[in-house]
Amino acid sequence: MISLIAALAVDRVIGMENAMPWNLPADLAWFKRNTLNKPVIMGRHTWESIGRPLPGRKNIILSSQPGTDDRVTWVKSVDEAIAACGDVPEIMVIGGGRVYEQFLPKAQKLYLTHIDAEVEGDTHFPDYEPDDWESVFSEFHDADAQNSHSYCFEILERR
């Protein structure tokens, strides 16, 4: 099963200049909980913004210009990325925008964090048809001392 995991502000903004323009430790914990011990696929820009392999996960970098870091697996196509994951129950696609666009048609599940923030962004989550998805989990949280904005975790499964 292919799943996408993303944090989205208003207007589906997911990033600005290779960074997330908010401070939500709870979302980072949600991300870790849902990706640990699963292969993660990301684009080169996302890889560069993280700066290191995510521990406890097979890191697969999709790029037309593969790098030389041998701590991760470099691939040039969506099919190659899927094959590099091996026989696993769930593959997690973690961004960025172009990689989400490439995998959305193949995805069966979306793990979304909806952030109540209007922020400037240069990267967006692809538009998706809500009628194609069923919400199977939703959990709202107010902003607090650690988390700069209110947010809602949601899991959607393709109908």
Rank of each mutant, 00 (worst) to 15 (best):
I82R: 08
F125I: 10
S63I: 04
L8M: 05
E48V: 13
V72G: 13
G56L: 04
Y128I: 10
S138T: 11
K106G: 11
L24W: 02
Q102G: 10
G56F: 06
I155F: 06
V75T: 08
P21H: 01
C152D: 12
L8T: 11
P55T: 10
L36Q: 13
D27G: 00
N59M: 04
M92Y: 15
K109T: 12
V99A: 11
G86Q: 11
P21A: 04
Y111S: 00
M92W: 12
S49Y: 01
Q65R: 10
P130C: 15
A84M: 05
G51F: 09
S63H: 04
H141F: 06
A29L: 08
E129L: 09
K38W: 06
P89N: 05
I41P: 01
S3F: 01
M16C: 10
I155C: 07
L4A: 02
D87P: 12
H45R: 02
N23H: 07
T73G: 08
C152Q: 13
F153V: 06
D70K: 08
K76Q: 08
S3R: 00
D127S: 13
S49L: 01
H45A: 15
R71P: 07
E120N: 14
V88I: 13
R158N: 10
A9R: 00
A117K: 03
D69W: 12
D11G: 11
L62E: 01
I14M: 07
K38S: 13
R33P: 02
N23C: 10
L4F: 15
D79V: 05
R33D: 11
P25C: 05
P21F: 00
P66F: 15
L24T: 13
I115Q: 04
E134N: 09
A6G: 06
N59R: 03
A83M: 10
G15L: 01
W74V: 12
H149N: 04
P55G: 09
Y151H: 12
F31P: 02
W74P: 04
P53D: 07
P126K: 12
T123G: 01
P53K: 07
Q102W: 15
V40C: 08
E129W: 13
E129K: 13
W30N: 14
G51P: 12
Y151V: 14
F140Q: 12
M42E: 02
G97W: 00
N23P: 05
S64F: 13
F140R: 13
V99G: 13
K76M: 08
P55S: 08
S150A: 07
T35R: 00
Y151T: 13
V136H: 07
F140W: 09
D142Q: 09
Y128W: 14
P55N: 12
K58T: 04
C152A: 09
D87L: 09
I82W: 11
R12I: 03
A29E: 07
E157R: 09
G43R: 03
L36A: 02
H45S: 15
H149K: 03
I41R: 01
Y128V: 06
P39V: 12
V119I: 08
A19D: 12
A19T: 05
K106T: 10
L62I: 15
S135N: 15
D127I: 14
M92L: 15
L112H: 09
D131M: 03
E90L: 02
H124E: 04
P89E: 07
S135E: 12
A29Q: 10
S148F: 01
N18A: 05
A6I: 15
A81T: 14
I155T: 06
S138L: 12
I115Y: 04
N59V: 13
S49V: 03
P126W: 12
H114E: 15
L8K: 08
D142W: 11
E157W: 06
S138G: 04
I61W: 01
G56N: 04
I91D: 00
R33T: 14
F31L: 04
H141M: 05
R71A: 07
P25L: 06
A29I: 01
K38V: 10
D131N: 05
A117G: 06
V93F: 03
G97P: 00
A143T: 05
F140A: 13
F137E: 11
P53G: 14
D122P: 01
R44V: 05
H45T: 15
A145T: 06
S63K: 03
Q108M: 06
K76L: 10
P53H: 12
T123I: 02
E101F: 10
I82Q: 07
E120T: 13
A143H: 08
P55C: 08
T68F: 12
R44N: 15
W30E: 14
P66W: 09
N34H: 10
Q65F: 08
I155G: 03
D87G: 10
M42F: 14
V10I: 02
S138K: 12
Y151N: 10
H141L: 06
E17T: 01
K58A: 07
E129V: 11
V136W: 08
D11E: 12
D70S: 08
F103T: 11
S64L: 12
A117W: 01
S77W: 13
P21K: 01
W47C: 10
P126I: 15
R98T: 03
A83H: 06
N147L: 02
V13H: 01
F31I: 00
D27E: 05
V75G: 05
S3D: 02
K76I: 13
D79G: 05
E80C: 08
T35L: 00
Q65N: 05
P39W: 10
Y111T: 05
I14A: 13
F137G: 07
T73E: 09
V72R: 07
W74N: 09
E154M: 15
L156Q: 13
R44Y: 04
G86A: 09
C85H: 15
E48A: 13
T68D: 13
D70R: 09
P21V: 04
E101V: 06
V40T: 14
I5L: 04
L36V: 02
D116N: 15
A84K: 05
R12Y: 10
V78F: 10
I91C: 15
V40W: 00
E120M: 13
E17L: 02
P39Q: 07
M16L: 05
I155R: 09
S77T: 14
P21I: 02
K32M: 02
F140S: 14
S3V: 00
Q102V: 14
W22T: 01
H124V: 13
G86S: 11
E157F: 04
H149C: 04
S135F: 13
E101I: 06
G56I: 03
D132E: 04
V72C: 11
A117V: 09
E139V: 06
